[in-house]
Design a protein around this nucleic acid. Structure first.
Lengths: 113, 113
DNA sequence: TCTGTTATCAACCAATTGGTTGATCAACTG
DNA sequence: CAGTTGATCAACCAATTGGTTGATAACAGA
């Protein structure tokens, strides 16, 4: 888990850019799972999945606990929320901008008529 | 702009993983701008910014129009919405999962006492 | 202690990425 | 037409990424 919110966004968005990692997240949203369980559906090696999981953990999107030799992964909803929050700020800003432009155009039309 | 929603997510999330591109989006949320205008605040070459803009355009996050020799960029709120939508589905799923677990634990506590 | 299971580490490889410089294209302006 | 401005193309480079194989660690159970 990194510190700066800037690097947090870097690594979290990068983590979501891979379809394997998005599938892992989709699976983990339905409950915790181990590396072996997560790797099972994929046509790649367990080591590759382990690397993907390290990327997700590094980005703060998932956390891991210990249960004997197993290390289940858990999805962190707060980390996901931080991403939607960043996106929504800018989406709402541009939508506001659009509405403002519409108002200007309407005003111009009224002046014309 | 790509077709498959899977590749759409790949490229859009990858686009957001770069701090320069996020800054471009933040700027564009306040209104359209040209490559030169967008490049001005950055310590990198105009060509590098042009590449970043191509990445954003390819991902569908921005569109471009023609005005003589200038080609202004516009942020597309719908593309942003598609991303928050994907994230929120899984965030809500895992939060629901948490609440379900809480209920189970509460039930167990009641049985104990 | 020996065996099987869970998971990671290390080294390597091909492809991609983010940046550079230099040339070029396309459109406006004198 | 000649010159300037906005933007892209092309070739190149260093660093990163996603994957592999093989070895190794850590723990559980007989």
């Amino acid at each position: 888990m990194k510190q700066g919110s800037e690097e947090q966004l870097n690594s979290a968005f990068a983590a979501l850019a891979d379809p394997v990692r998005r599938a892992l997240i989709a699976r983990l949203s339905r409950g915790p799972a181990t590396v072996n369980e997560l790797a099972e559906p994929f046509p790649i090696t367990k080591q590759a999945v382990s690397k993907h999981i390290q990327v997700l953990e590094q980005s703060g999107l998932i956390t891991r606990t210990r249960e004997g030799q197993r290390r289940p992964c858990h999805l962190d909803p707060a980390a996901l929320e931080a991403l939607t929050s960043w996106i929504d700020i800018h989406r709402l800003t541009v939508e506001r901008q659009f509405r403002r432009l519409d108002t200007v155009l309407d005003t111009l039309k009224e002046k014309e008529s």
